[in-house]
Design a binder for these strands. Structure first.
Length: 193
DNA sequence: AAACTCCTAAACATGC
DNA sequence: AGCATGTTTAGGAGTT
């Protein structure tokens, strides 16, 4: 799959950005939102089942992305490969996660050197970064603050970047249907959706 | 050129 | 009052 976002085409390129969630490789189609349509199968259905109850208590504090299957697939291939964590030297990810070098999708992200790249704008869209942060969380959900923290930790670039990026993160969480706001308490019970 | 996606900025509302 | 968070809108830029 393509679970990997093709990182890059431009730093902000989309090509896949959001793909994180949708991850797919379709040629450009959808991404973020579009994803609903694609990866959407899962996500949407999930959200549908959730929405009712959740809508009533959206006091949320944590965020999670929908779509477990996707996550799994990501963790097996895509995300891991894309995830800077491994390179970050935090040893959070197994080094073995080397993706197939042939995967065109990994292209730029692959070449993104955390060593030097960490201080540069990451070749992932905010949707991707958020996805990675959440994916990296044990419960697959994270409070906004922790998302900020994760991003800062793995992409020091943002430490010196204008604060606007936080706004972008919130904007993505809010706009991207792939991310779901969940109540804190509920999240403990419902841990895995 | 059009459609689409993403980024950024900003305004506003709400809660602590 | 100030800050953090969440939502929404708008404009610009890049890709297909």
């Amino acid at each position: 799959m393509g679970p990997t976002m093709p990182p890059s085409k431009k730093a902000q390129s989309p090509s896949s950005g959001a793909s994180a969630s949708e991850g797919r490789s379709p040629p450009y189609r959808g991404q973020g939102e579009a994803t609903e349509a694609e990866a959407g199968d899962l996500s949407l259905s999930l959200s549908a089942s959730f929405s009712k109850a959740d809508d009533e208590e959206l006091t949320s504090l944590s965020w999670l992305h929908e779509s477990t299957d996707l996550l799994n697939s990501f963790s097996h291939s895509g995300l891991r490969s894309v995830s800077p964590l491994q390179d970050a030297g935090h040893g959070q990810r197994s080094p073995s996660s080397s993706p197939s070098p042939d995967d065109p999708l990994l292209g730029d992200a692959h070449s993104f050197d955390l060593g030097t790249g960490a201080n540069r704008k990451p070749p992932y869209s905010f949707s991707c970064l958020i996805f990675m942060a959440i994916e990296d969380a044990p419960n697959k959900r994270l409070p906004v603050k922790d998302i900020y923290g994760w991003i800062l930790e793995h992409f020091p670039y943002f430490a010196s970047a204008p604060t606007g990026w936080k706004n972008s993160v919130r904007h993505n969480l809010s706009l991207n249907k792939c991310f779901k706001k969940v109540d804190k308490d509920r999240s403990q019970v419902n841990d895995n959706k």
